[in-house]
């Protein structure tokens, strides 16, 4: 899923400054699962913003609404009835796709992103998320013992580990596992080292962002 985290409150306050009536739009997708932008987090943020406004003695009405997803127009348009409220700002709590879709659907509204969209990953434990994919558009993890060197090696090496791998950790930080240590251990224990060594991979980055913004259109699904 997409892992995101809330922006610092001071930055969010700059979005709200001078506004009297705002709408917080939460999302029931990835950002609910990673506890960043679901109904609950919207409730917390709404409360904090109201407390801040009360402290400053300025009027602020914060409404909250949760959409099923914000990456599908059919859900975005569920906002239409609320648009009659004439909000001074709409704060989306989805990944950055949400505020973009809202802004595009309602071009007259001022739309702000509440979250920083961080990476594609999963939960290692409750409250801990880690990156596992870089959306390079051409998955090769099966060649690396099921591990992704593109997203998990700090240098995206296809022939690692570099000389900075020490004690199973990356030279960048002791917080980062050296994925190449893990790959080597895996192919060693699998007994697939020979096959592994015969690989000569050069990444074709065209399928990644480097090929320009990507789009998938499937004829059989189009109306």
């Amino acid at each position: 899923m997409i892992i995101a985290e809330r922006k610092p409150i001071d930055e969010i306050k700059t979005f709200v400054k001078g506004k009297e009536k705002i709408l917080l739009v939460a999302c029931r997708g990835c950002v609910t699962v990673c506890n960043a932008g679901g109904t609950k987090e919207a409730g917390i943020l709404a409360s904090l913003l109201r407390l801040d406004a009360a402290k400053e003695g300025v009027p602020l009405k914060v409404d909250e609404l949760t959409l099923e997803r914000q990456c599908d127009p059919e859900y975005i348009f569920e906002l239409s009835p609320s648009m009659g409220e004439k909000y001074d700002a709409i704060l989306s709590m989805a990944c950055s796709i949400g505020p973009q879709f809202i802004a595009s659907a309602y071009p007259n509204e001022k739309v702000y992103p509440v979250l920083n969209t961080c990476f594609l990953g999963g939960a290692l434990a409750h409250g801990v998320w880690a990156e596992r994919c870089q959306a390079c558009g051409n998955c090769i993890i099966h060649k690396f013992g099921g591990l992704c060197p593109i997203s998990r090696c700090s240098k995206s090496l296809l022939n690692g580990p570099c000389g900075g791998s020490a004690g199973g950790k990356c030279e960048v930080s002791k917080e980062i596992d050296c994925v190449w240590q893990l790959i080597v251990e895996k192919v060693t224990s699998d007994g697939t080292m020979d096959e592994f060594l015969s690989l000569e991979l050069v990444k074709d980055w065209r399928t990644s962002r480097d090929g320009g913004p990507r789009k998938i259109a499937r004829e059989e699904l189009l109306k």
Binding site: N159, P161, S165, A166, V184, M193
Partner: peptide, 13 residues
Amino acid sequence: ADPEDYRVIRAAK
């Protein structure tokens, strides 16, 4: 660097 046993293999590459 680590993994120790692999270093010579990487040199071979």
